[in-house]
Amino acid sequence: MVMAATGVGVGDLVAALVAGTLYGNVFVWAIVMGALLKYILNEGIGRWYLATGQTILQGWHSLGKWATGYFGIYLVILGFAFGAAVTSATALATTTMFPALPLWSWAVIHSLAGFLLVWSGHYRLFEQVMIVLVGVMFVTEVGSAAILFPNLAELSLGLVPRLPDGSLFYALGLIGGIGATVTLAAYGYWLREKGWKGSSWIPMMRLDLTVAYTMTGLFTLSLLVVGMELLFGTGIILEGDKGMVELTRIVGKELGEAVRWLFLIGFWSASFTSLWGRGTGSPTSSPTLSAF
């Protein structure tokens, strides 16, 4: 549940939404491939930790300082860029719901909330809150797709790999974005917090990742369905986090104000779980500091 919540951010949902809006069911295969690829990568990371007791960052450190130095530079740049983007996205959702406070105020509030939750160092609390927010995301995102009654036979045609002209970067964005990147490095820390050690835990770890990436793929596919059913062929193109706000307006118009609010809550949940989850690695130990 923690993997699914952390790995699905607003950027991934927007990418799926835009792909469904522009190309209909064409990129179902890319979502499936992205979830499968991240499962394979993370299964290797999980086996490494269970076999050695070391996280993937500690493993890279054993190769020499150049390895963690390279990743450290990447992580610092990503941290600033992602930190700004995810707090803005989270604030955008709450500003839309509660416009009494400006966007910058909500961004500061969410940044401080994320910091305090991570600083508290209680993995059990972290896990429980993430499970609740995954439930919210499931009800809102998957529920929205189900309300639109997609044609499953037509949707299944998207399992056949195709690349329409000019669509390569949309496909790569979906394949690479699903499940995130820092989330992979964080997995070993979450296994450590759970107390999973030794090869006897490999079957449980594989089941854990199967559930995680099944849900990740389902969340992403749901937004593709929403884009396909509501916007495909209309000429409306939604881009960036603000596109999600515009989508909530369209959802409200088509499905009612109650569904619009549910969708906004799902938008907020997807943003805040990414902010919190990717900021942890381990709530009691920063993955970057541990590696160095």
Rank of each mutant, 00 (worst) to 15 (best):
Y213D: 00
D241S: 15
G266K: 03
V226Q: 13
L255Q: 10
S222K: 04
L275E: 03
K253P: 11
K194A: 07
G240H: 04
M228W: 14
L207M: 00
L221G: 05
L238N: 03
S199K: 13
L264Q: 05
M204P: 10
Y213S: 00
V259T: 14
K197L: 13
K253N: 12
L230P: 14
I202S: 05
R206L: 05
W196K: 08
A270I: 02
L223K: 08
F267L: 12
D241E: 14
M215W: 11
L207D: 00
F232L: 10
L238C: 04
S269K: 03
R249P: 06
E246M: 15
I236W: 10
S199R: 11
M205H: 01
I236M: 08
G235D: 13
M205G: 01
L221T: 09
T210P: 02
M244R: 07
W261A: 07
I237H: 08
T234G: 02
L247E: 11
Y213I: 00
E229L: 11
S222T: 09
F219K: 12
I265S: 06
I250C: 11
G233R: 13
F219L: 12
Y213V: 01
G266S: 02
M204G: 12
E239N: 08
T220S: 03
V251P: 13
S200E: 12
E254M: 10
M228C: 11
L230K: 12
L221E: 06
S271A: 06
L207W: 00
T214L: 00
L207Q: 00
W261P: 04
W196M: 09
W268C: 06
G235Q: 12
S200V: 11
S200A: 12
L218S: 00
I236H: 09
K253L: 15
M244E: 06
A258N: 14
L209I: 03
R206F: 05
V251F: 12
L275Q: 01
A258Q: 14
T248R: 15
T248Y: 15
T216N: 00
D241Y: 15
L275C: 05
I236P: 08
G235E: 15
I202Q: 04
I237R: 10
W276V: 05
M205Y: 01
S274R: 02
A212V: 00
L255S: 07
L223T: 14
T273Y: 04
G252E: 10
S200Y: 07
G235L: 11
V225M: 01
E229M: 12
M244P: 03
G217W: 01
S271I: 02
G252H: 10
E257L: 09
R249H: 13
L262S: 11
G240L: 05
